[in-house]
């Protein structure tokens, strides 16, 4: 997984005073490693500090025990909440100006990820001898829930525009309601896509048409 990447990043740090690589230290970190890529910065900070302080066993222990929880926390916060929020905000912006939409995606995402990576590396360095304390203080779950609450009105806004622009608002809302219902029943995207596509083909065959509602609002 990310073991090779972690080794690549940490290896310049693991040199002896004479400039030669510390092979024993390198072997310690050339192992299986898998966490959320943004959260890896925290573990990098912890490991770098502990290795510098001559506590290799603590460094390995911290890395092994924290990569799972940090990965789970990062997946929930970044992939499931902040990522979709940024994407959907940029899609809304694209309705007014496509270029602005694309720029919003790139700028917001990178401002978020670069600041998070930088901050987490520093926190890892500061809390290396007690890495759990900072993790306990983080409000990842709360932020994730708040981000998801913002997604709902923005999704509604997008759907409203698309429904009106398609020329068949009732059909759009019905197809959306059906998709949502199937999601809440636990169906996965692929199955829902298949069902909705089949329905769409039948509707097309019956002569129902929709306008592709893409053009800037102004």
């Amino acid at each position: 997984m990310q073991g090779l990447g972690f080794f690549f990043v940490i290896s310049p740090w693991l040199r002896k005073q004479d400039g030669e690589y510390d092979i024993k230290a390198l072997k310690r970190h050339l192992v299986y490693f898998n966490t959320h890529p943004f959260m890896a910065s925290y573990l990098l900070g912890v490991v770098a500090k502990l290795e510098r302080d001559g506590e290799p066993k603590a460094a390995v222990r911290a890395k092994e025990s924290l990569m799972g929880p940090m990965g789970a926390s990062g997946d929930g916060l970044f992939w499931a909440s902040l990522g979709p929020l940024i994407a959907i905000l940029s899609l809304c912006t694209a309705l007014i100006s496509p270029l602005a939409g694309v720029l919003t995606l790139i700028l917001l995402h990178n401002a978020m990820q670069i600041s998070v990576r930088w901050k987490l590396f520093n926190r890892g360095w500061e809390n290396a001898h007690d890495p759990l304390t900072y993790i306990g203080e983080r409000q990842d779950r709360k932020v994730a829930v708040q981000a998801q609450e913002v997604i709902a009105p923005v999704s509604g806004f997008l759907l409203g525009i698309v429904a009106m622009r398609s020329g068949t608002p009732g059909t759009v809302l019905l197809l959306f309601a059906l998709s949502l219902l199937l999601f809440l029943k636990g169906w996965n995207s692929s199955r829902i896509l298949l069902v909705i596509l089949m329905i769409s083909l039948i509707m097309g065959w019956l002569g129902i048409r929709m306008e592709i509602p893409w053009f800037p609002l102004r």
Binding site: L95, G156, L159, G160, A163
Partner: peptide, 9 residues
Amino acid sequence: GLLLGALAG
């Protein structure tokens, strides 16, 4: 959001 979007659309 839906109502606002419908007005915008």
